[in-house]
Design a protein around this nucleic acid. Structure first.
Lengths: 224, 224
DNA sequence: CTCTGTCAAGAGCAGTGCTCTCGGTATGCG
DNA sequence: CGCATACCGAGAGCACTGCTCTTGACAGAG
């Protein structure tokens, strides 16, 4: 009962903080949030022990929001359409980032100065890449992937460790290529969100679609 | 004479600011810089009209430092060794980022809240990718690249526009792949610098080398 | 009905970016 | 050489920040 009021309060604080984040940017002001909430600044500390804790909560929410969007979008695609599932993941990441640029910056941009990611963010953070792993796993089981690459031992160990978590059956070659695609996906989105593409690509959408389609082919997913 | 003292002063401010950036992080304090310089805070404003202007100066320096490192490393490789030149670029970007993580974050991380990149940062920012363009251009002139890909028209236009700036002779297929490599390179480095690889890849060096080597092969640069 | 735990309010501290004014100094011109 | 101008650093001050601490009010439990 009293706990429910408390939960509502923290949710409201997070909602206002998210709104401030969207309009102002990364420098979130506790006092401004308190003002918008019609409360004095010290009252916020009843619910979040520090500003960093508030940010951590927002980061966790952002990870789960992104992960949820990706999982939902990928889940809506016909399971047999492996390339479609892959492209759904890629486009959902980009779309979510474009819709929530500041939250994207919060989780994939430069970390805030003194901040160290708490351990509990890890599962939320890995959710999206796990969905990608599912596609690679299914493609492996469907027998559509070819394993042409030879990886050096040290790199192979890293790829194998990642594969064990997200696509245990996949061979290392396609897995390494999928990992590269993942990096390229976020490289593209980060460049676009952070303005690195200005005066270079004015409408990045088609280029993004082409790049991700090329990645699907490079991984070895069936061309549709 | 008086101008030289002024130049020395601005250089000293920038040096101290860079040092603070390296130790503290992105939240650079003008007053702390002034303290370290043995001067009162308002004196800084004689040399930089605002904190953002100081940051802009540091950003510009960071771009030219990275661009210079990349150009120097690539220039030291035998011109005929196209893959070696490509790999030199990739590894120099990563090495520079690892050596100067906060400056990397300054230019490739989330932009500071109210900040808009001034126009004069563009040439400095494009220096590094221009070096990559040189490699692609030379590879094209050497006739080692194959143009297998068919790009959709809208994406082709973007790729062509970029190609006109950095590698005018290159066909769109390899150019698009090189662009993807560039994005993947910065995707990897950003993930590594920003801690996205923690608890996943503990020693990213070998994986990076393998990924970049794979990219060189994917672009079509001769395997060495 | 009292007691205890939770809550918001308010004052206050140390720090921030930035502005303005006030003396002092060096430069360049007549 | 003498003076006016431009520049420079110091200092005070404003509005803001995150955060701490104390105080008083209120609700639920015994």
């Amino acid at each position: 009962m009293r706990a429910r009021l408390r939960a509502e309060m923290t949710d409201e604080i997070k909602a206002i903080a998210r709104r401030h984040l969207a309009t102002e940017g990364a420098n979130l002001s506790l006092r401004a949030v308190a003002r918008d909430l019609g409360v004095v600044s010290s009252a916020i500390y009843r619910y979040f022990p520090s500003r960093d804790e508030l940010l951590t909560a927002l980061i966790l929410d952002a990870y789960t929001a992104l992960g949820g969007s990706v999982a939902a979008a990928e889940g809506a695609v016909d399971r047999a359409d492996l390339t479609g599932r892959f492209l759904a993941i890629c486009h959902t990441v980009r779309d979510w980032a474009l819709a929530n640029p500041h939250e994207y910056a919060l989780i994939y941009g430069s970390p805030v100065p003194g901040y160290v990611a708490p351990r509990d963010t890890v599962p939320a953070a890995t959710r999206a890449v796990t969905v990608l792993g599912g596609v690679i796993e299914d493609a492996t089981l469907a027998g559509v992937l070819r394993d042409d690459d030879r990886l050096p031992d040290d790199a192979a160990a890293d790829v194998a460790r990642i594969g064990a978590m997200i696509a245990p059956s996949a061979p290392l070659g396609p897995l390494s290529r999928a990992l590269g695609s993942w990096l390229q996906l976020f490289g593209f989105v980060s460049f676009e969100i952070f303005g690195q593409l200005h005066n270079t690509v004015d409408v990045p959408g088609p280029l993004f679609a082409q790049q991700m389609r090329a990645q699907a082919a490079y991984i070895g997913l069936p061309t549709t």
